[in-house]
C-alpha cells in the first residue's frame, strides 16, 4: 500500500482550503505508517470547536489514515 507521495497535501479547515508541497511539511505529517510502510497523506481536515480540535489525515484512496485529538489550555 506504500507509494511515492503525489507531491501536494490539501489542508482543509474552517478558513478554507490551502495546498502545501510535501516538502513544506514534516515527514510524519506527509506519511502515515500503515502495516510498517509509509502511506502518503494527501488531505488533512481539521475541525476546531472550543477547546477541542480533531485533525484527520486521508490517503490517496480517501481512506482515513489517522485522527489526532488536540486540547487547548485556556
Amino acid at each position: 500500500m506504500s507509494a511515492a507521495h503525489p507531491g501536494k497535501i490539501v489542508f482543509v479547515d474552517a478558513a478554507g482550503e490551502r495546498v502545501m508541497a510535501v516538502g513544506e511539511v514534516p515527514a510524519t505529517v506527509a506519511f502515515v505508517q500503515v502495516g510498517g510502510a509509509p502511506v502518503p497523506v494527501v488531505r488533512v481536515v481539521a475541525v476546531t470547536q472550543g477547546d477541542r480540535r480533531e485533525i484527520k489525515s486521508y490517503g490517496v484512496d480517501g481512506a482515513l489514515l489517522s485522527t489526532t485529538y488536540q486540547q487547548s489550555r485556556a
Binding site: V32, L65, S66, T67, T68, Y69, S72, R73
Partner: peptide, 13 residues
C-alpha cells in the same frame, strides 16, 4: 494557535 497540544492519535490499524 499555539495553545493546542495533542492528546491522542488513532491510526487506521
Amino acid at each position: 494557535m499555539a495553545n493546542f497540544s495533542s492528546y491522542m492519535t488513532c491510526g487506521s490499524e
